[in-house]
């Protein structure tokens, strides 16, 4: 047996979810890259919260405000003391993103179902297309937790100049600047390629196994500590292209390895690579 995760309670198994399917204090939330997946069949009792349609403001590039967040919770039957368990496709990318967004609004009890949608389906656990309805709640947003887990571009510039820990979790080709998703992704595109000076490249996917579960604490430490040189007390900022992949890395560092100071820069490369005079490093 290796070392346990620092906050093992945030990770629940598929068995746990199945046992708590009817627990009124638990709400299962599916959050996917592919928005059709929920409607094709989901964990019985699960509600859908879409990172794009629900959690992002449709006008300004930002998250929804507290009022809209409360409305989502009320609609999905989430109260302030509900245990919210996120799961989704792509090894829980979007589940972690939704988890992070819930933490921005200070929701207390958030968890992730290890293995996500893929493992649930692979293990042939039950799914349904039935959309559940829960009694409306009266959610009171606890208050912003933003400063401790979200970094903005000015913070990142200071952070980079100070030589503090900065993780770029995109693919190696995006990191070196060789690859840019320009022509067909104009809204996600950046005008310049490369990375933020001082950033180290640790693709997000290194934190997960083939079956979608998270790697063990020992394996994670081998990557983030032995290889990259992070230390528990480091002030860490993680980014990717729009902040989704880096929310998984944020989750891993914060909860599985217990780093107290990790922020996600959700502006990420789509903001940085378009900023006039923002410093950029190219190559490996």
């Amino acid at each position: 047996m290796g070392e346990p995760y620092v906050h093992p309670e945030v990770l629940v198994s598929a068995d746990w979810v199945q046992e708590h399917a009817k627990d009124p204090k638990v709400r299962i939330v599916e959050s996917d890259e592919d928005v059709l997946l929920y409607d094709m069949g989901h964990v019985p009792g699960a509600v859908k919260i879409d990172w794009q349609g629900d959690l992002q403001d449709q006008l300004v590039r930002d998250y929804i405000n507290a009022e809209k967040f409360a409305a989502i919770c009320n609609r999905t039957g989430i109260a302030n003391d509900t245990t919210v368990v996120f799961y989704g496709d792509k090894s829980n990318w979007w589940a972690c993103y939704a988890f992070w967004a819930f933490k921005l609004f200070g929701h207390k009890d958030c968890r992730v179902m290890n293995g996500g949608r893929k493992l649930w389906i692979d293990q042939k656990r039950p799914t349904t297309t039935e959309v559940p309805h829960y009694p409306t709640t009266d959610y009171k947003v606890a208050g912003a937790n933003e400063a401790s887990i979200r970094a903005f571009r000015d913070d990142v510039l200071v952070h980079s100049k100070a030589g503090k820990a900065l993780l770029d979790v995109r693919s190696p080709k995006e990191f070196t600047g060789e690859k840019l998703h320009m022509e067909d992704y104009p809204q996600e595109g950046a005008l310049r390629g490369g990375h933020i000076p001082g950033a180290k490249n640790v693709p997000w996917s290194r934190a997960v196994n083939e079956d979608g579960t998270f790697k063990s604490a020992d394996e994670l430490k081998a990557i983030y500590e032995q290889e990259i040189g992070l230390k528990t007390q480091d002030d860490v900022v993680a980014y990717c292209r729009i902040g989704e992949r880096s929310s998984l890395t944020w989750f891993v560092l914060t909860y599985l390895l217990g780093y107290p100071k990790v922020r996600n820069y959700d502006g990420s490369w789509c903001e940085w690579g378009n900023l006039v005079r923002a410093p950029i490093a190219k190559g490996a």
Partner: peptide, 9 residues
Amino acid sequence: ILGMLRVRG
């Protein structure tokens, strides 16, 4: 139904 970001691909 998909949102603007998803239709790019």
